[in-house]
Computed example of a mutant assay.
Amino acid sequence: MSASRTTSTEPVTYERRGPLAVVTMNRPKYRNAQNSAMTYALDQAFYRAADDNEVKVVVLAGKGEHFSAGHDIGTPERDAHLPFERKSGLWWDHSDKEGAESRFARESEVYLGMCRRWRELPKPLIAQVQGACVAGGLMLAWVCDLIVASEDAFFADPVVRMGIPGVEYFAHPWVMPPRIAKEFLYTGDRMTAQRAYEIGMVNRVVSRDELSQKTVELASRIAEMPRMGLALTKRAVNQAEDLQGLHAGMDSVFGLHHLAHAHNAETAKDSLGGMDVKAMKKGAGA
């Protein structure tokens, strides 16, 4: 059973279950909204799983009713202004900069940079999704190789309400057909787990009561495969996606994303377009 476990007071917990590592976001009070402390804790957990020779497969979960309601834009523990030790790239510290220089540096690190590196974790990564998987939550699910969702799970990217063309890790046209991606973004509506399964974004839909069990069963089955075979297969499929334009497409949209931030900073109350948690919940929130 569990070979190691972190404490329940940390923003992310880590548990070994034989050949599986279960990484769990642990801010259920805030629907697992991702502040920087959580993001860097996730990074540490994935490094830990990569370095552990006994771990064959990693499961990413969220404690409580929801997988993740997205980036933290309004909890008492929001820490976007604080410096953290940078690991994803060579951009300078954002915390003592202003304007686009600050925003671009931070989001290159904690959003696009982190997600890109997690996608390349050389071990299968499975998302176990229940409840809300919104905006930044999508980014975490989409870097995973497989997604198992509960029947009550829903997916949404409502940031067009901010005047922003989708979240920073812009995988939309690769994880769903382009016309579905446009509808998903234009409306900001929730997509049910069943609909996500029908378009190929989700691998399996199960009852909430069976979610953990079914995810572990799938992960355990995959863990029977040779480690090197799994790593090379993952690299092969990821390379195929990149040849289809995923990597370059994200770079181009990241620039549009920051154009939107800059426009909002000039025309609205702030770079988020003046949207608060209550406004973001409208129609799509948890």
Rank of each mutant, 00 (worst) to 15 (best):
E241I: 11
P177A: 10
A219F: 09
A193W: 00
R221Y: 09
G188L: 12
Q194D: 08
G245F: 03
M176F: 00
L259S: 13
G188D: 10
E198A: 05
S207E: 06
L256Y: 09
N238A: 06
D209Y: 07
A196Q: 02
R208N: 12
G200C: 05
M228P: 08
N264Q: 01
G229H: 01
M250I: 14
A265S: 15
G249M: 00
A219L: 11
L243H: 13
V216W: 03
P226Y: 05
F184L: 12
E198L: 07
K214P: 00
S220F: 02
A196Y: 04
A265T: 15
M201C: 12
D242P: 04
R179V: 13
N264C: 04
F184C: 12
I222S: 00
F254D: 03
R235C: 09
G249H: 01
Q244N: 13
R195P: 09
T187D: 07
H261L: 04
A193V: 01
A265D: 15
E217W: 06
K214D: 01
S207A: 10
F254T: 01
T233N: 15
I180A: 10
R190M: 08
G249S: 03
E183K: 14
K182N: 13
I222K: 02
L256D: 11
Y197C: 07
H258C: 03
R208E: 11
H263Q: 15
D242M: 08
M176T: 02
S212K: 09
T215R: 06
L211P: 01
L256C: 05
G188W: 08
E210R: 15
H257R: 11
I199Y: 00
E224H: 13
L259T: 12
A240H: 12
R204H: 06
L256T: 07
M191L: 11
A219P: 10
K182H: 13
M225N: 13
E183A: 13
V202R: 03
K182M: 14
V216S: 06
S252H: 09
N238H: 09
R195L: 15
M250W: 10
Y197E: 14
E224A: 14
H261N: 10
